[in-house]
């Protein structure tokens, strides 16, 4: 499957604007929003939900009052400081089950947790799989895996060539989960000091998991010196630089209007995004 995952290390570099633009430009694809704890793609694609479901994942401990003899063992054993005064703090409990197995009175139960929802939708650019993690919940990585699995099944069912995935920020669990086995990662970088260090860490994750990477610099004219530094970094590392986009209010205006920037701006921005799409689409096809 030709799955292209758009990530950025740091958030807010224009990942979603680019994903939405690929949605408008690319042919024959399923869209997947894997930024499950702050998904935004739906705000420019206006999906009509055709299928949805609950995402139950992980467990939390609960102490049954009548059965607990207040021996204090669970409190002593829990390494996450989640038990105090014979009550479990939901937000701290990691669901490890240590207390459940150890309690001599059998007073602890492990209960399933509703962690979020997944959706399969139709949009004017093709099918979209998205999700919403309930704030504060764990297992975003598993929800990401579920979104990708559904996107893949849809692509196979409808014989679509590409999956375009809007990835999560960071380098932790959800990012690792969105990358594993993907055809390629498009890293959207910003020419700022923090953008450079975030890019390096994102490249590190791609290398660690053996995912081919390409870089696109957004807002490149914000700081051309750092922009050149990113170009040098890419060429030293043998990472293909597939395009550069300007610091332009069109990005913000397009979001405000609820349309992909490549549709809002007909001129050079659209041309450049088209070029980027063709470059990476050709590259994943060859792989």
């Amino acid at each position: 499957m030709n799955e292209i995952v758009i990530i950025s290390g740091k958030g807010g570099t224009g990942k979603t604007s680019i994903a939405a633009s690929f949605a408008a430009i690319g042919e024959s694809k399923v869209l997947a929003d894997c930024d499950v704890d702050a998904s935004d793609l739906h705000l420019v694609l206006f999906p009509t939900v055709v299928d949805k479901g609950e995402f139950w994942s992980g467990k939390k401990a609960r102490i049954e009052e009548g059965k607990c003899n207040e021996c204090g063992l669970c409190q002593e054993l829990c390494r996450f400081g989640a038990i105090r005064d014979f009550k479990v703090d939901h937000l701290s409990c990691e669901g490890c089950g240590f207390c459940f197995h150890a309690c001599p009175a059998g007073a602890i139960v492990m209960e399933d947790v509703l962690s979020g929802y997944w959706f399969v939708s139709e949009t004017r650019y093709g099918p979209l799989v998205h999700a919403r993690l309930i704030p504060g919940e764990e297992n975003s990585g598993k929800l990401v895996a579920l979104v990708r699995q559904k996107a893949k099944a849809l692509a196979e069912e409808k014989a679509l060539k590409y999956i375009v995935t809007d990835g999560p920020p960071g380098i932790g669990c959800p990012v690792i989960s969105s990358l594993s086995g993907a055809a390629m990662a498009l890293l959207v970088a910003e020419p700022t000091m923090s953008g450079v260090s975030d890019l390096e860490r994102a490249v590190g994750v791609c290398n660690h998991f053996g995912i081919p990477a390409a870089v696109c610099i957004n807002k490149y004219d914000l700081n051309e010196e750092i922009g050149r530094e990113i170009e040098r970094y890419c060429s030293q590392r043998g990472i293909e630089l597939v395009g550069k986009l300007p610091f332009d209010e069109a990005f913000v205006e397009a979001i405000s209007k609820g349309v992909p920037v490549a549709e809002y701006s007909k001129g050079s921005i659209r041309n450049e995004i088209e070029r980027i799409w063709e470059t990476i689409a050709t590259r994943v096809k060859k792989q």
Binding site: L91, G136, E137
Partner: peptide, 14 residues
């Protein structure tokens, strides 16, 4: 704090 609203964010804000 990290961006988002998932468990690492809660851990930091708590």
């Amino acid at each position: 704090v990290a961006p988002g609203t998932s468990c690492p964010v809660v851990e930091a804000v708590k």
